[in-house]
Write a protein that binds this DNA or RNA. Structure first.
Lengths: 184, 184
DNA sequence: TTAATATCCGAAAGTAATTCGCATTTCCGG
DNA sequence: CCGGAAATGCGAATTACTTTCGGATATTAA
């Protein structure tokens, strides 16, 4: 069902997503959809959650490979993974981590991007042993929010992601984080 | 009707907006709503457009006052106006320039933020006589997209706008534009 | 004053989400 | 194997809206 949902999103966007279509595409009765999910929103939620898992796994794998000179390389790698997911993961370009459906889809107490920022922070702290300060948390939350918005724009304008805008997003994020991390 | 729409948005968010409620609140029959607007989306569109007008007028007025040392002060003033509108214009905190309803609400050919960025660019070019280059247009589009996202976050978390996040949004925008405008 | 025109109105139709009781399958203990 | 719980599958019916449309009412012009 999640795959059916992703396919429909790619074809007709979030507005084209109906519970009936999900059922048809997945070859199950509409009642069966509601067997697994309390409502339509929950289907999107599950897909967004799956996207988050994939994102986390890919970052972990990349961090394990190592070879990063400094935090800046790491941030670059994370952006690259995020961009690549837009291009290859079905439905990701439309749904991403759920913000099209609801900013609080992943967690009712936190914005989707806050959840994503939290995951990234955790992984960076574990891998690099940097201080896990409030300052770092805030900076990452802002960087994720801003970077996400600009990358979203890049993929709205061009299904493969407008390269110039993607490059600007990287510049923006690197610049902002640099001014935060280097200063005392 | 637009005022009714704005009030409902403030009270119950975009999900709480129904055509019946708009009609009740505005003290007209549901049929009359459809006399003026082809559909529900068009009501939001009209309100978003009105917000854009107000934004433009306030910026014009502020620019006419003058007293800006450089472009940086101007950008600061525009951000201030945008923030102030979140706090004082009914429905603005929820609808803003329409992105909650549809990223292409203002103009079917351009993202809402692209329209906003275009207006700002026009006013800056007219007031300061700077070169109206593609480079400026792109930088402004990115800055608006990113700044908008971070400010949206500030007002999601706190109806009056989390001051720390608002400050970071300014820092982000100023930093990004500085690195663009100063370099050749 | 009348007739043409514009505006208003809300019951009814259309559309998509969600429910719920019956049908079918699966799983076990005898 | 068989009978009968229990789980799962099903889709017509219900619900919650948005939108239409034809008659009722008001306004304007001759």
């Amino acid at each position: 069902m999640l795959d059916a949902c992703a396919d429909i999103l790619d074809e007709d966007g979030y507005d084209g997503l109906t519970t009936t279509r999900i059922a048809q595409r997945a070859d199950v009765a509409i009642g069966s959809v509601y067997q697994f999910f309390p409502d339509k929103r929950a289907v999107a939620q599950a897909l967004a959650l799956r996207n988050l898992e994939v994102f986390g796994e890919r970052i972990s794998a990349r961090l394990a490979e190592g070879g990063f000179g400094d935090w800046s390389d790491t941030v670059g790698a994370i952006i690259e993974i995020f961009v690549e997911m837009h291009r290859t993961v079905p439905g990701f370009r439309v749904l991403r981590f759920g913000d099209v459906a609801d900013v609080n889809l992943l967690d009712s107490d936190a914005d989707n991007n806050a959840v994503v920022a939290g995951r990234i922070r955790q992984m960076i702290v574990e891998s690099f042993g940097v201080q896990d300060t409030q300052r770092l948390a805030t900076a990452l939350a802002i960087a994720v929010e801003a970077g996400d918005a600009v990358l979203k724009m890049a993929f709205r304008r061009d299904p493969a992601g407008d390269p110039m805008i993607v490059a600007e997003a990287e510049r923006l994020i690197h610049g902002y984080l640099a001014s935060h991390i280097e200063e005392p």
